[in-house]
């Protein structure tokens, strides 16, 4: 065991893991966290807390992680390279560990052009690959990037993202292999809609033995409506929403589209449970946390295991 996080223990015990996601509010109200977090208690093994997602200023991920710990939820601290240099990143990692945070998800971060402060100077001192290596070096060698020995070593279960739907496709599995080489323990994929492409990517990962070297979680985001599906298809870079799903949503009455989206998500999870190399699902119900229960119940993922 590397970090003894609940997520790591669930994987190690051979269970199919489930993670959720919580987007912090654009304000200082801790009650919002309690409200959103409450929907996830008992349903997931760990909760990702996004870090200024889409480059929009929100309550600090680390603070929200601590609030979740107080609620009995295990957080997964998302950390992006856009907003901090190597000094701030390492300082934050040490602070996160001291606060009891055991899972970290290493990300590059969306470009600030999309966010609410496009005038900002970005950092990108290190990239997501190097952030993984930073976490690993701190944990396994007890050292900072500059080789300075730490007094008190942070123990992180190290995660990263993978997007099989970005280009060039043939490089995507290489990038996964690089993340494993850099030291990643688990991967959460981008939201999956194009199942054929995802199967191909998983086949490549299996063939290279990569699924033996890290836990791969399939990213699932329920589609709320035809509008949302179209938006994701057209405007979210690196997302691939096939017409087939849009046709299914169109095939039901507008007020039933959300229910159809949840049905699709459940079907996807059921396929993921059978897919070789998949160790769990990452359910990103974006601003729809209250539907996670219906999804994980429908997919037969409850009760969540208690692993000591």
């Amino acid at each position: 065991m590397k970090a003894q996080s609940n997520l790591e223990r669930v994987f190690a015990a051979g269970h199919f893991a489930v993670t959720g996601e919580l987007g912090p509010p654009r304000g200082a109200d801790a009650e919002v966290i309690k409200e959103k977090g409450q929907y996830l208690v008992g349903l997931v093994d760990s909760v990702n807390v996004t870090d200024n997602q889409t480059a929009v200023v929100r309550m600090a991920s680390m603070a929200v992680c601590r609030l979740l710990l107080d609620m009995g939820l295990e957080p997964n601290l998302q950390m992006v390279c856009r907003d901090r240099n190597r000094l701030a990143i390492q300082a934050d990692l040490l602070g996160a560990s001291a606060l009891g945070i055991k899972n970290v998800l290493c990300l590059s971060g969306d470009h600030q052009k999309f966010g609410d402060h496009p005038q900002a100077k970005n950092v990108f001192d290190i990239d997501s690959m190097q952030l993984i290596a930073t976490c690993k070096k701190m944990r396994d060698e007890g050292k900072l990037i500059n080789e300075h020995e730490l007094e008190g070593v942070p123990h992180f279960f190290i995660g990263a993202a993978a997007n099989p739907f970005a280009d060039p496709f043939d490089f995507r599995v290489t990038r996964l292999a690089k993340k494993i080489e850099a030291g990643v323990d688990f991967i959460q994929s981008q939201c999956i809609y194009n199942m054929d492409k995802f199967r191909t990517w998983m086949q490549q990962a299996n063939d290279l033995g990569l699924t033996e070297k890290c836990y791969i979680m399939a990213g699932i985001t329920p589609l709320k409506s035809v509008g949302m599906a179209r938006y994701m298809q057209k405007f979210v870079p690196g997302l691939d929403v096939p017409e087939e799903y849009i046709a299914r949503l169109k095939g039901v009455e507008k007020k039933e589209q959300g229910a159809e989206g949840i049905k699709i998500a459940i079907e996807q999870i059921q396929e993921m449970k059978e897919m070789k190399g998949i160790s769990g699902v990452h359910v990103m119900a974006i601003e729809w946390e209250e539907k996670v229960e219906e999804i994980v119940t429908g997919a037969g993922l409850l009760p969540r295991p208690e692993v000591s």
Binding site: F124, P168, F171, P237, G238
Partner: peptide
């Protein structure tokens, strides 16, 4: 690269273009 990445294209590389603009080539591609 809009993010000065050193380890390959990020998840926003699409059809040879960068996520920041369809006018910008993804140099990693």
């Amino acid at each position: 690269c809009a993010k000065s990445l050193l380890n390959g294209p990020c998840g926003g590389s699409s059809g040879g273009k960068c996520e920041i603009s369809p006018e910008t080539d993804c140099v990693w591609h």
